[in-house]
Write a protein that binds this DNA or RNA. Structure first.
Length: 576
RNA sequence: GCGCCCAUAGCUCAGUUGGAUAGAGCACCGGAUUUCUAAUCCGGCGGUCCCAGGUUCGAAUCCUGGUGGGCGUGCCA
């Protein structure tokens, strides 16, 4: 919360106390929000809850509050409008407060002081020996963004790549290799080659179920812990995969604090099983070991050991929860995993609840929608499913970069360092598009819309940054010192300033709801307001006092856009 | 069958947890450049908030029942 907002709250709490409501009672009901129509005021208070608590009619209370808040150096006006009280800040105070905080990198615009929150974020988690395709992108970019948002708010964050490097999919791959594989081909281009083998396996396994039995045997051999051919192959493919994933991760500016994949829990699963068994909730059903969760309204039991003795996804996730609990002591564990796996996490949490483990409360599935593309009939369908072909993320990023290169050739042919900027803007466009809507919504991936860089898009916000940078560059002076600026010159910038004022709440809400799109929306709003402002308010041509004040505004807007984008994992260019 | 999710302008979506006259972008139409980047800006057009009940001072938002679409539903992840 900014100084400005704190000041207003304080005065309101005083006023309410004067009207007979204690500060502690009033505090939680004092929800200041931007009015629907900004012409009403800068912030508004709906007096409904407060009035109820005080046994008054909302319009009456609103009138009393408005009367009790006399203008001061910060608050310009408090006006009752029916059950609402609308407040206006003094223009100079608004500008000074917001711009000072931004330029001094004070919270909420800069990082907050360390809090007690410890957040584990389990994200990206691709399967080894498979291409990094479009389907992995959502978890990766949402997860990265949430890591950055929580860090910004002062939490200790552990970003974890729970690599899919164990289990049946990998065993199937191995089976394919043992049937049709060729060592020299494999060494030449391991990822490509393994993917082709995997496709062949999927096709052949449909007519030949014996392949799956074979795969199960290989998995057993791998899980035996012996140093055998299965283990050596696993090691080789894991190393190659990590190397291959590095490419997309670098392009998306993604880093992890831990890469503890499923295999990491290989020697920790027995302990986890023991813990479950000790609680007396483990049952044997059809040869498998399960925990039933009917009493929690979950119809399907959670399988923890297959009838052939091997473990499952759930077993490893359970071991991972215990490991994270004792290693990190997290207050929240977020799983950035597609909505289609909701049942899996309900079951995981259900087992922990049945075990009466307090950590259960920290476990939180953060689901998101699918990536869809249009099929030949113009209907939306799952992207990767088209003729079994995965779409490589690199290809999509390349396509966006190509398109940006073309636009640069049209709009700004003299631009230096075109390739680097095209990469920056193109990747930003894709990431921005992914983080634009609520995560539960499916991403409709349509090349035409995707590569139309007009309107509310990554390039739109990037472009705003570039324009602002350009003005600062051309000013040929450093940004004026804050105490030298006459903030009353920025009375015409109220719309920009009010959006800036919303930043803190936006980031806060994004963290609470695990919803980066709230931050995305804020960057769009800020870019929009500053674009509009610049049309009618020239900076460099203005007289000195005005010019200085506007330069400060421009620098603050640029910095806040850069901060907002950085919370999304995007770095905007200085020119474009 | 059962469970979960989604449904708001022609299209893609917001709507700050129940509040003021439901907002953007795209598309379409019209306009803005001797001045800091027109990847921009300004204006116009466009609504049975899926349907039917209910809760209350007040519902796009909460509840119940439908409809349509998606996802999931014990030895994959």
């Amino acid at each position: 919360m900014s100084q400005l907002q704190r000041h207003l709250r304080d005065r309101l709490l005083d006023a309410l106390q004067g009207l007979g409501l204690s500060r502690t009672d009033a505090e939680p009901m004092l929800r200041l929000e931007p009015p629907k129509n900004r012409e009403h005021g800068d912030v508004a208070l709906g007096a409904f809850q407060l009035a109820k608590a005080m046994g008054k009619a909302p319009p009456a209370l609103a009138a009393e509050l408005a009367a009790a808040i006399a203008p001061d150096a910060t608050v310009a006006a408090a006006v009752a409008a029916g059950p609402f009280v609308n407040f206006r800040f003094q223009r100079a105070a608004l500008a000074r407060d917001v711009l000072t905080d931004i330029l001094q990198n004070a919270a909420p615009y800069g990082p907050a002081a360390k809090s007690k929150e410890v957040v584990c974020i389990d994200f990206s988690s691709p399967n080894i020996a498979k291409p990094f395709h479009i389907g992995h992108m959502r978890s990766t970019v949402i997860g990265t963004s949430l890591c950055r948002i929580h860090r910004h708010l002062g939490a200790t964050v552990h970003g974890i790549n729970h690599l899919g490097d164990w289990g049946m999919p990998f065993a199937k791959m191995m089976t394919a290799y043992m049937h049709w594989g060729d060592e020299t081909e494999l060494q030449k281009a391991p990822m490509r080659y393994m993917f082709d083998l995997y496709k062949r396996y999927s096709k052949e396994a449909k007519d030949n179920p014996a392949l799956d039995d074979e795969a199960a045997k290989h998995f057993q051999a791998l899980e035996s812990g012996d140093d055998n051919k299965e283990r050596r192959m696993w090691q080789f493919l894991r190393d190659e995969s990590l190397k291959a994933f590095q490419g997309p991760y670098e392009r998306l500016s993604v880093t992890f604090d831990a890469i503890t994949g499923e295999s990491f829990f290989e020697d920790k699963m027995e302990d986890a099983m023991q813990r479950v068994a000790k609680k007396g909730i483990l049952e044997t059903s059809e040869g498998a070991e399960v925990v039933t969760l009917k009493e929690q309204g979950i119809a399907t039991p959670c399988l923890l050991r297959k009838s052939d003795g091997t473990t499952l996804y759930h077993t490893r996730d359970l071991a991972a929860v215990f490991y994270r609990e004792s290693t990190y002591h997290p207050t929240r564990i977020l799983y950035i995993v597609g909505a289609e796996q909701k049942l899996h996490f309900d079951q995981l949490k259900g087992v922990l609840v049945k075990m009466k483990e307090p950590i259960a409360a920290a476990v939180e599935h953060v689901p998101f929608g699918l990536v869809l593309s249009k099929n030949d009939e113009g209907k939306w369908e799952k992207f990767a499913s088209r003729s079994g072909n995965a779409v490589f993320l690199d290809e999509i990023l390349d396509e966006a970069v190509r398109k940006v290169t073309k636009v640069i050739a049209e709009k700004n042919p003299d631009l230096e360092d075109k390739d680097r900027i095209a990469e920056q803007v193109g990747v930003a466009a894709i990431v921005f598009n992914d983080l634009k809507n609520s995560r539960i919504k499916d991403v409709k991936f349509d090349w035409e819309t995707m590569l139309n860089f007009e309107g509310e898009t990554g390039p739109y916000v990037s472009y705003a940054c570039a324009r602002l940078s350009s003005i600062l560059r051309k000013s040929e002076q450093s940004v004026p010192a804050i105490d030298k600026v006459d903030f009353s010159q920025l009375a015409d910038a109220e719309k920009v300033l009010l959006v800036m004022l919303d930043f803190g709440t936006a980031v806060q809400r994004a963290a609470e709801q695990s919803e980066p799109s709230i931050v995305t929306a804020h960057t769009i709003a800020l870019a929009g307001e500053i674009h509009s402002y610049l049309r009618d308010h020239h900076v460099l041509g203005a007289e000195p006092a005005v010019r200085d004040a506007r330069l400060l505004l421009v620098e603050a807007a640029r910095r806040l856009l850069v901060t907002g984008l950085s919370l999304l994992g995007i770095t905007p260019p200085e020119r474009m």
